[in-house]
Design a protein around this nucleic acid. Structure first.
Lengths: 363, 363
DNA sequence: CTGAAAGCGCTTACAG
DNA sequence: CTGAAAGCGCTTACAG
């Protein structure tokens, strides 16, 4: 691996017998150049194996054509698909993609944003793990760096955002269960951070029909609200002990929690899982308990994962348009990068309920 | 979004009353500085909200502390986990990660490598989609850029590589079926590119026990070889019509192919799926056909996906250490980046067969 | 321990 | 259409 010194514009210029300015113009394809000059330069470049050094160019232009993404966990199908959508748009516009995991940890998120800023990305897409703390994100704004928030929002931060209407989506999903006659519906939710004073407080206020500032609630909390709304809508009473909070983004933890629900002598007739990871946990618990869906238990999930469609019967679920969410976020970001200046836009994507066979009629 | 001009080292130096050289030394933490000077500089930096411009630094040092990865499809759990492993190592060493999808398409792969080179990554990890064409990868070598190959190798390219022993792993997986008494075992495999003159030619030579240059075979072809070996090992005859080639990285395509296998009046008693995507397709076909595992059909998969463990019974599979493969690749790459100079190393990771409940005893 | 100067590889006015 | 010069924001010898 002999480190052959790379050819620079100066080398090409020398060989072509022109100035570096001229060589730069043809190699970078900006400014004019006589056809013949162009040919000479190109030939020299080819001979030397010249390759643009994007670093040097970026230092001058102030643009890197690279965007940064901080996602919770790129291994999670939710993020993986979103990232794919982002990557597709980035690639089509010839942008690079710098990706960092936050593991839903504020410290890591802050470090990630710093790293990306130092590397001078042209803009960031972040799925913030804290709806309150926003110093690092405000720094971005102050630096004039475009930012789009994904899936979640941050209190008092008016920037571009793409998400789905979690409350409505969850209400729709749970309603499917209610319509089928279910009265006792368990919920297994992530609900990591203590929001609005914790589960009890939120429940009390939610049950009272109070209008909550739901925008900065985490998705799983919003989905809980949707669950409550579905109950209220049909005059169904909420049985608080059926609402189970996992407190971690972990299928295993979810499985343990779901297991408790399933082991009860007064087991609910149906369960609603608030996201893909929770769904895996619940499904695991159902399997382990030897229960059958929907014979012994009806199930509705959130987010459409591969296995939900090839199980038989298939699992009914609220499908988020993950790929499209990523594409949308990237498109909005690149618009900003290109200079659009307007107030923060909030794009709500449509989530569709996919009916399969996991809901039994309950008398 | 007023684009506040960023503070530079010169600004900090001016405010601190020192030279830019000195300011640079304390901000970049290289070279000496009196405690007091250091304090002055730090204070000025804080006041100005100074942030290193990694671009400028990299231009001088020739190092970007960024590595590039070109993966087939970041949305595929196989790559997603590997990427997570890479990301973990990168993050722990304070490196950035530039990710591009190739979709197993040579053109896209070449473009991806070019993009990454222009952005001056310190090294690359690539999962090459062609085992023959290697110009773009040789360019890397010529430029002295560290490269590690993932999952696949390229003919005549002696560089670092991490993979598993696909032949042995597949042989082990299929043997589990043979040991249980299965004589007619279907295979559903990706086998995209025509290798070694196509399926028939390879089969003929493989069945004849000929030693093939298997190193540059694609994983699914190697796994086919393992399947053949398991048969030969136990004197079992291979029924060629049971070997089904999908020719695409698509669960849907795999499902169609598997369906044909399952619809036969002389249906095999077991099926071996050669990777995660094929496994999803086969599972889909099984579900759709209303067959039960292992009652109607035994199943062994390759790569351990979430659903394989929470189905009941669970699916027995050959588990690749995806996360560890990514960590290993990144670790090797960073060693090279740090300057280790040795011949290409090939690290074979261990894959473990996970027995669950998808194999029935077959009389 | 600190500073003046040069330079990394480009692009950008400014002349001509 | 082309070139000489300056400069992006840093780091690196080299003196002192």
């Amino acid at each position: 691996m002999a480190k052959k010194p790379k050819a620079t514009i100066a080398d090409v210029a020398r060989l072509a017998g022109v100035s570096t300015a001229t060589a730069g113009r043809v190699l970078g394809d900006y400014g004019y150049a006589k056809a013949k000059t162009r040919e000479q330069v190109m030939q020299a470049a080819r001979k030397l194996g010249y390759r643009t050094n994007a670093l040097a160019r970026s230092l001058i232009t102030g643009k890197t054509r690279t965007i940064g993404v901080v996602a919770g966990d790129i291994q999670n199908p939710f993020y993986a698909s979103i990232l794919r959508g982002i990557a597709d748009v980035a690639e089509s516009r010839d942008f690079g993609l710098l990706i960092v995991n936050s593991d839903e940890n504020l410290d890591k998120e802050i470090r990630a944003v710093n790293l990306l800023m130092e590397k001078q990305v042209d803009g960031l897409i972040v799925s913030p793990c804290d709806t309150r703390y926003a110093h690092h994100l405000r720094d971005l704004q102050a630096a004039g760096l475009p930012l789009v928030l994904l899936d979640r929002s941050v209190a008092g931060l008016e920037v571009d955002r793409v998400a789905i209407d979690n409350i409505a989506a969850a209400e729709r999903a749970v309603s499917a269960l209610v319509s089928a006659g279910h009265r006792r519906i368990g919920l297994v939710g992530e609900m990591l951070e203590d929001q609005e004073g914790g589960l009890e407080a939120l429940l009390k206020r939610g049950l009272a029909g109070e209008v909550l500032s739901t925008d900065t609630l985490f998705p799983s909390w919003q989905r809980l609200l949707g669950y409550l709304r579905a109950h209220r809508q049909s005059g169904l009473e909420v049985e608080i002990s059926l609402i189970r909070r996992v407190g971690a983004y972990s299928a295993q933890a979810a499985q343990a929690v779901a297991r408790e629900l399933l082991d009860r002598s007064d087991r609910p007739t149906a369960v609603f899982a608030t996201d893909g990871t929770m769904s895996e946990g619940v499904m695991g618990a159902i399997s382990a308990a030897g229960l059958s869906v929907p014979g012994d238990l009806s199930l509705v999930c959130f987010d459409d994962l591969e296995w939900m469609s090839f199980l038989s019967p298939g699992i009914s679920t609220m499908a988020q348009p993950r790929l499209a969410m990523g594409e949308q976020a990237a498109t909005m970001l690149l618009e900003r990068v290109e200079g659009t200046d307007s107030r923060g836009r909030s794009v709500m994507m449509r989530a569709d309920f996919v009916e399969r066979g996991s809901i039994a009629i309950c008398e």
